[in-house]
């Protein structure tokens, strides 16, 4: 199912190197009066058509890491390579879908919101951009709302627009920063389903940040576990065998508790040791 049976695209040859390499990245940001270390010496590789998950509790620097890949933050140490070239600044080859609903310019209709970045990044003519926007709006099932302004849409629909916008730019890697965290549980489940269906169809490369173990197992094919304060790599595990249907199975539960142990037990044990 995964990867092997993908519709043949321009690179039928299996890739010889990872699409995105994060090599020993240490990230720091300035808080008033001090420098906070968000991640320390983090390395991972994302391959073409991966659904790569960064999973960890809050404070593990996963969102900061994603922003660094997006080019919004420069690493203090280490480097980030996309197609073998270091990343400098934000660009349309790495599009981010944020958690916040205000990522959509409210002065543009759904159609304009999806078409505008394609135009702005200067790769397509107006007509081609409009056609591509049409295509991806249809893919996320919002054709009926193409002329609506974002303020009239529900949260789930706004996130669909953001996903359509990101896909329309056909980035090398799609970055998602807890995109469904602000949605209600029913909508979140629906959006996960739709995202996976889109991946089946389009085979984009996804780097996905979440703090939900279930979401990580369901959405991802490989999960990187980060420990907090500062973010350090704890483990990388495979999760390609799980999908939305495997929710309640004992194996799924076992995988979930394994992740839970990896993320939390160490810290708990350390706390216990310090009390003794």
């Amino acid at each position: 199912m995964d990867g092997m049976s993908a519709p043949v695209r321009e690179n039928a040859v299996p890739p010889s190197r990872p699409l995105l390499s994060v090599e020993g990245v240490t990230l720091e940001y300035k808080a008033p009066g001090r420098v906070v270390r968000a991640t320390q010496n983090v390395s991972f590789d994302v391959w073409e058509a991966d659904r790569f998950i960064l999973l960890g509790a809050s404070g593990c620097g996963k969102s900061t890491l994603l922003k660094a890949v997006g080019g919004f933050i420069a690493p203090r140490e280490g480097r980030i390579l996309l197609d073998g070239r270091p990343v400098h600044g934000p660009g349309p080859d790495r599009v981010v879908v944020f958690q916040e609903f205000d990522q959509l310019p409210p002065w543009k209709t759904v159609r304009e919101n999806v078409a505008f970045p394609v135009r702005a990044s200067g790769r397509l003519s107006r007509k081609e951009a409009a056609e591509r926007a049409e295509h991806y709006i249809e893919k996320v099932g919002l054709s009926r709302f193409a002329e609506a302004y974002p303020n009239t849409l529900s949260g789930g629909m706004k996130q669909r627009v953001a996903i359509a916008r990101a896909l329309a730019m056909e980035p090398r890697v799609l970055l998602m920063d807890e995109p469904f965290a602000a949605l209600d549980a029913l909508t979140r489940r629906k959006m996960q389903e739709e995202l996976l269906a889109l991946w089946e169809e389009v085979r984009f490369t996804l780097l996905f940040v979440t703090h939900s173990i279930e979401e990580a197992l369901v959405v991802g094919n490989r999960i990187a576990l980060l420990s907090p304060h500062p973010g350090r790599m704890r483990a990388e595990i495979n999760s390609h065998e799980w999908d939305l249907k495997s929710g309640g199975s004992p194996q799924f539960q076992a995988a979930a508790s394994r992740i839970h142990r990896l993320l939390f037990e160490e810290a708990g044990a350390a706390d216990g040791a310090s009390h003794e």
Binding site: V96, F98, S121
Partner: peptide, 12 residues
């Protein structure tokens, strides 16, 4: 909003 700024810069 910061997200909107980042989205704009993301467009290039």
């Amino acid at each position: 909003p910061e997200t909107l700024r980042m989205a704009g810069r993301n467009y290039g």
